[in-house]
Nucleic acid binder design. Structure first.
Length: 465
RNA sequence: GGCGCCGUGGCGGAGUGGUUACGCAGAGGUCUGCAAAACCUUUUAUGCCGGUUCAAUUCCGGUCGGCGCCUCCA
C-alpha cells in the first residue's frame, strides 16, 4: 500500500516498524462547538486510511485525540482558550462544553460508521504526561520562562523549518507582527501557559512552573508517545497543520526522544462551499443535522466525501450530495442482483475486479478511481446479470470488499421475503393473462413494502426503494 | 514574501499519451400494456503559448487566472 508522505513529498510504500501493526495518530477535533461537514470530510478520510490499511493486511492501531483544553483562538499563543470562549457563549463551564461536544463527536463517529479507534484520549486526562514532557524538554535546555508561560526555543532545534519547508526570514515579511516581545524567536510556542491573574479559569492545573494549562501542541506529542511509542508509522491531520501544529509537534517530540517522530505524514486538504472555505466568520458551516434535515442520508454524505481525492481541494454542494445519493442507490440495486440470477450475458471475473479495486485504493487512497471501478462493475452487472450461485457469492465477496473500504452498507445481506416473491410471481401470471388491473395492484402492494420492480426483457427485477 | 494546490462539457467531478468515467439538469427518440430501467441522439469539453512525440486533455517549460496555508479554521 502506498501513501503520499508530506515529509518527503513523495508517494511511498508503507513499511511499518513492527508489521503487521501500523501505528496511526490523528489530530482530532477541538470540542468547543458542533463540527461542520469540513471537519467530517477530514475525519472520514482518516477512517478510509484505517480501513484501507486493514484491507491490505495490516493491523492498524489508531489513536484519535480529543482536544478539550489549551487550543487558543490564535495559534500564536494569544487570545482566549476556545473552550473557555465556548463556555462563555453558552453560559456553562468549559468542562461542560468539553463534555458535551466530545460526546457529540464520539456519537458522530458511530453515526457515520467509523472504525472504532483504539483510543480517544482527551488532553485534560493527560496533564501529568504533558507536564512530564515539558520537564524533559526543560532538562535538555529547550525551554525558557517568560511572563505568560513556559516556551519552546525553536532556535535550539535546527531542523525546525525543514518539515514545512519554511523560509523563516521570508515568512516574517508577510506575516503579522508578533505581539509578544518577550519571545526569543517569532516561531517559539507555549508549552505551558500560566493562568491569567485577573480572572479564574475553569480549567487549570498546578505545575512546577505555576498554575496554568498546557499549550495546544503539547498534548499530541505526549499522548501519541504514551499510546503508540516514540516513533509513529503514520501521523495524519489537516493540511493547515503543516506549518505550525505539526512542525511544533515534531520539534517537541524529537527534541525529547532524539528519534524521528513519525515516518509518514498524511495531510488532508480542505473543502470549499460556493468556492469559499468554511469558516466561523463566513458562517457557512453545515452540520450533519442540516444534511439529514434536507432528507439526505449520512451514508450518501460519506460516499460524497469519498468521491474526491483526499489531497485535492474539493467542493461541497447540495447538487453533488444528491448525485451521491443517487449513485448510492444504484450501487445498492446492483448488490441485490445477488438474489436474482439470470441466464444470459458475460460472466463475472471476481479475481479481475478484486485486483482492480485493491490496486486503486492502495495507490494513495485513490477513491475516485476506486469508485470508477465500482461503477464499471455496476455497469457489468446491470448489463450481464448474475448467472448462478457461485457468481452470486463472488459478487457478494466484492461487495463486502467495497463496503469494508468505503464504510458503506451497500450490501444488506438479506433477500426479500417468500411472500414478496410470491406477489412477484402472481404479478407475472397476471401480466401473461394481460390482467393489467391486477398486475398494477400487486405492484402497488410491493411499492408500499418498499420494493420496486423493473420489467426487463428476460424477467422482472426487484429493487429496494 | 514563503509553502502548496488547481484550471475539463449547462453544473459537479474522474480516468487516460491515440477509442472522452460517473452523477445531476434540459431536449428528442427506441423499447414497454403502463411504469421503471436500459440504450441512442442532442452542444462530445479539456485557460493560453511553446516543447517532447507519429500522436497530448494526459509529459515538460512558460504564461494568464483561481484557491488554500503562513492569521480563526479540518
Amino acid at each position: 500500500m502506498k501513501l503520499y508522505n508530506t515529509l518527503t513529498r513523495q508517494i511511498e510504500e508503507i513499511t511499518p516498524l513492527q508489521a503487521p501493526t501500523v501505528t496511526v495518530y490523528t489530530c482530532g477535533p477541538t470540542v468547543y462547538d458542533y463540527p461542520h461537514i469540513g471537519n467530517w470530510f477530514t475525519f472520514i478520510r482518516y477512517d478510509l486510511l484505517i480501513r484501507t490499511l486493514r484491507m491490505s493486511g495490516f493491523e492498524p492501531k489508531w489513536v484519535l485525540n480529543i482536544t478539550d483544553v489549551g487550543h487558543l483562538v490564535s495559534d500564536a499563543d494569544e487570545g482566549e482558550d476556545k473552550l473557555e470562549k465556548g463556555a462563555k457563549r453558552e453560559g456553562k463551564t468549559a468542562w461542560d462544553v468539553a463534555k458535551f461536544y466530545a460526546d457529540y463527536f464520539t456519537e458522530g463517529l458511530k453515526r457515520l460508521n467509523f472504525t472504532q479507534p483504539h483510543e480517544l484520549p482527551k488532553a485534560t486526562e493527560h496533564i501529568a504526561e504533558q507536564i512530564q514532557l515539558v520537564k524533559e524538554l526543560e532538562a535538555k535546555g529547550f525551554t525558557y520562562v517568560i511572563d505568560d508561560g513556559v516556551y519552546y526555543d525553536t532556535s535550539k532545534f535546527p531542523k525546525y523549518a525543514d518539515f514545512a519547508r519554511l523560509d523563516l526570514d521570508e515568512q516574517q515579511a508577510g506575516a503579522r507582527v508578533e505581539v509578544n516581545a518577550q519571545k526569543r524567536n517569532p516561531t517559539d510556542f507555549a508549552l505551558w501557559k500560566f493562568s491569567p491573574k485577573d480572572h479564574q479559569r475553569d480549567m487549570e492545573w498546578d505545575s512546577p512552573w505555576g498554575k496554568g494549562f498546557p499549550g495546544w501542541h503539547l498534548e499530541c506529542s505526549a499522548m501519541s508517545r504514551k499510546y503508540l511509542g516514540d516513533t509513529l508509522d503514520i501521523h495524519s491531520g489537516g493540511i493547515d497543520h503543516v506549518p505550525v501544529h505539526h512542525t511544533n509537534e515534531i520539534a517537541q517530540s524529537e527534541a525529547a526522544t532524539g528519534k524521528p517522530f513519525a515516518n509518514v505524514w498524511m495531510h488532508t486538504n480542505h473543502i470549499l462551499i460556493n468556492d469559499e472555505k468554511i469558516s466561523k466568520s463566513l458562517n457557512n458551516g453545515i452540520t450533519l443535522e442540516d444534511i439529514e434535515a434536507k432528507g439526505f442520508s449520512l451514508e450518501a454524505f460519506r460516499l460524497h466525501v469519498l468521491e474526491s481525492h483526499y489531497r485535492s481541494q474539493s467542493k461541497f454542494s447540495w447538487e453533488s450530495l444528491e448525485a451521491a445519493q443517487n449513485r448510492l442507490k444504484a450501487y445498492q440495486q446492483m448488490a441485490d442482483m445477488v438474489y436474482q440470477p439470470t441466464t444470459t450475458g458475460e460472466k463475472l471475473d471476481k479475481h479481475k475486479w478484486r485486483m482492480e479495486l485493491e490496486a486503486s485504493i492502495q495507490n494513495d487512497l485513490d477513491t475516485p478511481k476506486f469508485l470508477a471501478v465500482v461503477s464499471a462493475l455496476s455497469a457489468h452487472v446491470t448489463e450481464n446479470g448474475i448467472h448462478n450461485e457461485g457468481e452470486a457469492e463472488d459478487l457478494q465477496f466484492l461487495f463486502h470488499l467495497i463496503d469494508e473500504v468505503l464504510g458503506t452498507n451497500l450490501f444488506w445481506g438479506n433477500d426479500i421475503t417468500e411472500e414478496q416473491k410470491q406477489i412477484i410471481a402472481e404479478r407475472e401470471k397476471a401480466r401473461e393473462n394481460k390482467d393489467w388491473a391486477k398486475s398494477d395492484e400487486l405492484r402497488d402492494q410491493l411499492t408500499e413494502q418498499g420494493i420496486g420492480l423493473n420489467d426487463m426483457p428476460n424477467g422482472t427485477i426487484w429493487f429496494r426503494l
